[in-house]
Design a protein around this nucleic acid. Structure first.
Lengths: 204, 204
DNA sequence: CCTACCGATCGGTAGG
DNA sequence: CCTACCGATCGGTAGG
């Protein structure tokens, strides 16, 4: 399943003619890196792996990113910010707290469990970030968490969720850990797992 | 803080005398590997790092373990089996389900949050295992999980914990995720976090 | 357990 | 974005 998007660019050849150049975009590199980092981990993924995945030569990714670390940073920040957009759409709908929470859980699980999203680097590659990169990624993470914190507040206040000020962290744990066991458990759809998760997290 | 245990061995020198040889045990290598894998990850830790930590030369760990992969396997299985002993002691005390659960949570959190235990490889290095190693480690993990499954059963039946058959997996998630944020949150002791976790997990 | 070493691979770069 | 390459490092081994 090698799905590749080609961006055809027509450039002047400097002699009054046109030359068609077929190239992969920066976004393709980020996508491939995301998938490979999620699959094998950051340290075990080589720049050559990534280059091969987008049909480049080994040195070429450095034309787009100055280092492997920068690529990791891009993968994480772009992933978090894309997720943020989806979650804000859910949370901003003006529904009841319980409905919002339920929808956030479903959306989050689609994000981390659907293999097409390669979201799991965000869960397990924090230690691969240098201190400088980490600060930037944490800012993106905080934006994402803020949506959840606000959505959980009324439910914690009503006693529908325990754990006090730490509630959102326990919720993240229960949800994010699912990537560790989901494939092995068989039979359950993502939506079914989400339903069970809500049943676990939310008191009647 | 370089804490090193020396095992002094007295050997015959083959000429009627004695020779004192100071050497590190296999167990020292496992401990150092455990700490380094937890700190930097398996792929980013080199055999040379481990050798240096136990004051050996780069090739010497291979005298004790035939490969880096075998060392990872040993770290994970020994860690899980040590944890198993502790948990069985807690669960076998014949206390009430709620008390057992509370104590399991406290014990598990001491295990994963106390830096001296270096338990977090067990949480995040599954993908670094080859298929052959993984099968053995999974067996140890299943033994550990079984204790929890049995302890949770009565609480799930009473409606004190939601999530049905998946309850123990959600519980593990909420607990294991704590290693991701605990150090940053400041102010809270492990016991305080454990108390909050129980409050989150167990319905009144 | 050390010495000495090997083949392979890696992140990154110069120059086009 | 490719060619060609470099210095560094890595897991692992032979022989003692």
């Amino acid at each position: 399943m090698t799905e590749t998007t080609f961006h055809i660019t027509l450039e002047s050849d400097g002699a009054g003619g046109l030359r068609a150049s077929v190239r992969e975009d920066t976004v393709e590199i980020v996508r491939a890196a995301s998938r490979l980092f999620a699959e094998k981990g950051y340290a075990a993924t080589t720049i050559r792996d990534i280059a091969r995945a987008v049909d480049m030569r080994s040195g070429s990714p450095f034309y787009h990113f100055k280092s492997k670390q920068d690529l990791l940073k891009a993968v994480m920040i772009e992933g978090l910010d894309a997720a943020l957009v989806g979650m804000r759409a859910v949370a901003g709908r003006g529904a009841a707290p319980e409905a919002i929470f339920r929808d956030l859980v479903h959306a989050h699980l689609r994000l981390i469990l659907d293999p097409a999203n390669d979201f799991s680097i965000l869960l397990y590659e924090w230690r691969s970030l240098t201190d400088e990169s980490r600060a930037e990624v944490i800012a993106a993470k905080d934006r994402y968490e803020e949506v959840w914190r606000v959505a959980l507040e009324p439910l914690v206040a009503e006693g529908r969720i325990g754990g006090g000020r730490l509630a959102h962290l326990f919720v993240f744990g229960a949800l994010n850990w699912i990537v560790q066991w989901y494939h092995h458990e068989g039979g359950l759809s993502i939506e079914q797992v989400a339903q069970q998760a809500v049943d676990f997290l939310l008191r009647p």
